[in-house]
Amino acid sequence: MTTDVDTDRKPAWRAHGTARRSTHVLRLRVSCALVAVTVLAVLLVPPLVQLDQQAVDLAAKLQPPGWAHPFGTDDVGRDLLLRCVYGLRVSLLVGVVAALTATVIGTAVGAAAGALGGRADRLVMRLVDTLSSVPHLLLGIFIVAMFRPGVWPVVISVALTHWLSTARIVRAEVLSLRSRPFVDAAVSGGASRWRVTVRHLLPGVLPQAGLAAVLMVPHAMWHESALSFLGLGLPTHTASLGTLIQGARGSLLAGQWWPTLFPGLFLILPTLAIAGLAGAWRERINPRRRSELML
């Protein structure tokens, strides 16, 4: 209970319902901190630290974590911390670019289907259903197999397999917004189909699409890792979290855990942090949240 100072009268003001907030705030702070550290690390470390991540030192191969190499070294003596940061950089880049591309495609398709309705809607959504019925990874493998290994085939593969869920979300939102009286009012005010979509429907679904995009980043990172782990993604000399884990398979069987553990953690922690941020965002954009004034 808190009492705040009031100027001329005596009322003792009481607070209500504050119990749930603290854990929310804590989760949000931890998530923010982790995401910030991740982003700063991948942005600042490579230009600032003049170390070669590819520097091979066969004399220091497979050293456990210690002062010289906090994360240890891999089977050709490369520093794992540096490799992990570079790997995260590539994975994050692939994740963000692929998620953005997928969101743009998904939003456009979903909004078009929802706004047009009727036959166009049915046709598009059947296509989406058909594509969704094929396992993502299988479809992704099919796409990368058509290109030479590299970053862009992976981005394309991830983007082309992940826009489906966004399209579904956006279409459902557009359909629910479309039947609101404010859309009726816009139509009656002379707004064209295009204007209704762009000015009233799309802005209403963008928070949802943005949320889907954020949640898709870890998804895309995992997808990239999976492709690389299978040897279908990035070429093995490019450090990405997937190639690192793949390269560490041999040493894991020999009892050296660090080349697997640290890239794994680098994959999991940003994922949790992004999910935490997305959770806080979802709470903010929840349409059912009542206005603070309860008007």
């Binding site: 009322p11 607070a15 319902g17 009542r290």
Partner: peptide, 19 residues
């Protein structure tokens, strides 16, 4: 309506009551 919510203890967290 806020008065009713206050009586039911259904105010949001940014509300303060007296009396």
């Amino acid at each position: 309506s806020v008065l009713a919510s206050a009586l039911l203890g259904l105010l949001p967290a940014n509300a303060r009551t007296a009396g």
